[in-house]
Nucleic acid binder design. Structure first.
Lengths: 223, 223
DNA sequence: CAAATATAATAGTATTACTATCATTTTATA
DNA sequence: TATAAAATGATAGTAATACTATTATATTTG
């Protein structure tokens, strides 16, 4: 994946003006990632972002309808990027079980190395996804946004891994349920590990989370 | 459980003035449950609540610091109540596996019958918990609130079911992780079923969710 | 170089999330 | 039953948020 420039194209329905095509737009993306991971999505405002990038908030509003749309854009970017990672991690691997395990590694572990893929800091972005992405689809307007295709990238990732499961266990009736449980579960366990340790078992470190979900998946599939 | 009045006492740190001890307080609780389940927690404000109960918002503020504190109170109430349900559902049941299955039923299925336990509509409250409770602990102030004991009730429920797991599989290293995965997973799958069906497999109805998590639990524990 | 486009600078509005004050009603108690 | 204490109502006000609008000034493009 290093030194390989893959262009992640985000549906035009997720922005007012493509942030990828201008310096200000790219600055909005990279600085919002930094600011959100610093102060959290709740405290994040376009006004504060404007101060960081030295632009009035009204300029940010030309790119995104509101901060929620920006979060949807970022999660969408993350899941398209994750799909690329899944493809690269499983290509040329014959055994479906090995492909499944490699996929689960990607889905359950936070990103540790920033490949400096363009202007996006993937380490910080993955932290945001792990702790805030649930807010992207937990809103009054889910249905409307879902129709617009806001969550297409996430659904694509779940579908891709579900397909591996069906290859391994064609009769298994709950591949999507299992994978979305694993993805969201891993995100939450990392959060619990940091903030509500009584709800998890990561006394020995967070490494166990990925192992837990891999074992859970294999056992659920009788593998 | 019917006709049995169990008094659920909520820690005084979760309110400014005990809503349980006055008519206005009880009206705040019952009407906020109705209003939140109607318009969602985001759109819910103390001003709108005030209109419903015919009191100024300033009166509501005398009971709760803000709407977030009210949500924390409601989730806390729900989990204490759920702990009672767990106790009643598992008492006198000898086989730990049967106790586990009955517990998982309670944790993964939304409440369908309102026992009219005092002024709280448990059906609506459980709907709120399933779809909004994650917002209670996904905030900037988790750590602070956790120290204050805001999530004690939830942690107690997880601990109680973890204990059953340890009775069945004393060597199992991840009982809390498994149970919090099941609880949060079930909540999310119900939400996905309604709003993002591509992330789940409930074409045949939501009944499958509970069965899925029971099977997943048994298999993960090699039972 | 002109026209089109993007950005900056600034102002303004509605709503939210509160806080404050004081009058009125209800409740407790002597 | 009178009186103090507590609770509630009515009203006003503030700071921040989440925008929208306008116009001037750059910058890009044809």
């Amino acid at each position: 994946m290093k030194n390989l420039r893959v262009n992640i194209e985000i549906s035009s329905k997720l922005y007012l003006k493509n942030p990828d095509t201008s310096e200000l737009g790219q600055s909005i993306l990279s600085n919002s990632i930094e600011l959100i991971s610093e102060i959290g999505f709740e405290a994040f405002t376009f006004k504060k972002l404007g101060e960081v990038i030295n632009s009035p908030e009204s300029s940010v509003y030309r790119y995104f309808k509101n901060k929620h749309s920006l979060l949807v854009y970022l999660t969408s970017w993350y899941w398209y990027w994750t799909e690329y990672r899944l493809v690269f991690a499983t290509i040329n691997i014959d055994l479906p079980q090995e492909r499944l395990m490699r996929s689960l590694d990607i889905l359950t572990k936070p990103v540790l190395i920033d490949n400096s893929f363009s202007y996006i800091n993937e380490v910080l972005l993955s932290e945001i996804i792990f702790s805030e992405s649930i807010k992207a689809y937990h809103t009054k307007d889910v249905d409307e946004e879902n129709k617009k295709g806001c969550f297409k990238a996430y659904k694509g990732v779940v579908q891709r891994v579900s397909d591996i499961i069906l290859e391994l266990s064609p009769e298994f009736a709950f591949p999507h349920m299992l994978i979305s449980t694993v993805i969201e579960g891993a995100h939450q366990q990392h959060y619990f590990s940091k903030h509500l340790p009584a709800l998890t078992d990561t006394n020995k470190g967070e490494v166990g989370i990925s192992e837990f979900y891999k074992t859970l998946t294999l056992k659920t599939l009788d593998l």
